[in-house]
Design a binder for these strands. Structure first.
Lengths: 108, 108
DNA sequence: ACAACCCATAACCGTTTGGTTATCGATAAC
DNA sequence: GTTATCGATAACCAAACGGTTATGGGTTGT
C-alpha cells in the first residue's frame, strides 16, 4: 500500500533542514549539492539524503552534468497540500474554489 | 527562541493519526475525546497527547463541560501553511495573491 | 456514599529519524 | 597517469517520536 501524496509531502516538509533546502532552491533557482552543502550547516551526505527525500516527494528535480548534480525546486509538488486543505477544511475549500473560478475566468 | 508557526503546523500534520483527528473534527464538527478515541484505533492517552499537539499548533480548540472536553477544528490554523507557500514558491504566490485580491474585492 | 466514567499526565519502551564518519565510483584538473 | 573533487551509499549512533499501561483528579449516576 503506497502512502498518499500529501502524507509524503507533509513528512518531507516537517524537517527544518529539508524545508530550508526547498526554500533555498525556490528563492535562488538551480543549485548543485556542493553549493547547497556550503550554506546548509550540515554535512554533504546529510544534504544528499534530504534531497533524496524531497525528490521522492516530488518537491525537487535533479539533473546530472559531469560529476555534479543540479537540483531544482518543483513548486507543483506542493499541490497535494492545497488539495488536502480544500478536502478537509471547508474554510479553505471555499477560498480555493473561488480562486479556481477566478483563474478559469481570467485564463480560460 | 520560539519555533516559527509554520514549523509547528508542519510537524503537527506530518503524523497520520494526528491528521486523521483534524480531518475528523473538520468533517464532523465538535467531538469529545471519548468519541475521537472510539474511532481512532489508538488509546485514549494517545488521543489526548495528539490533541495537545494540535492545540499547541493552533489547529484545534477545546472547551470543557463537566467531565468531558470538547474539541473543535480551527481552520485558520492552516494559515501559516498558505503563508509559507506563498513566501517560498512564486508559483503559488501568484495564485494566492490573486486570491487575496479577489477576497478583498468581494468582502472589503 | 460509592461506583463508573472522562480525560490528562507520568513513566516507560521500541522504532524512526536526522545527524555523523568512512568509502567508493565517476568525472575533472594538473 | 595521478590527484583532487563531486555526490551517493553504507554503517552507525543519540535523540525524538508515537505508542503503551498505570494512575489520579474531577464529575456524573445510582
Amino acid at each position: 500500500m503506497r502512502a498518499a501524496p500529501h502524507q509524503v509531502v507533509f513528512k518531507s516538509l516537517a524537517d527544518p533542514t529539508r524545508r530550508a533546502l526547498f526554500e533555498r532552491l525556490s528563492r535562488d533557482g538551480e543549485q548543485t549539492v556542493r553549493m547547497l552543502t556550503d550554506t546548509s550547516g550540515v554535512s554533504q551526505p546529510a544534504v544528499s539524503k534530504h534531497l533524496g527525500v524531497l525528490k521522492h516527494a516530488g518537491l525537487v528535480r535533479s539533473r546530472h552534468r559531469g560529476r555534479e548534480t543540479h537540483y531544482t525546486a518543483r513548486p507543483r509538488g506542493l499541490a497535494p497540500l492545497v488539495d488536502w486543505m480544500s478536502d478537509y477544511s471547508r474554510f479553505w475549500q471555499d477560498r480555493f474554489d473561488r480562486l479556481e473560478d477566478l483563474l478559469k475566468r481570467m485564463d480560460p
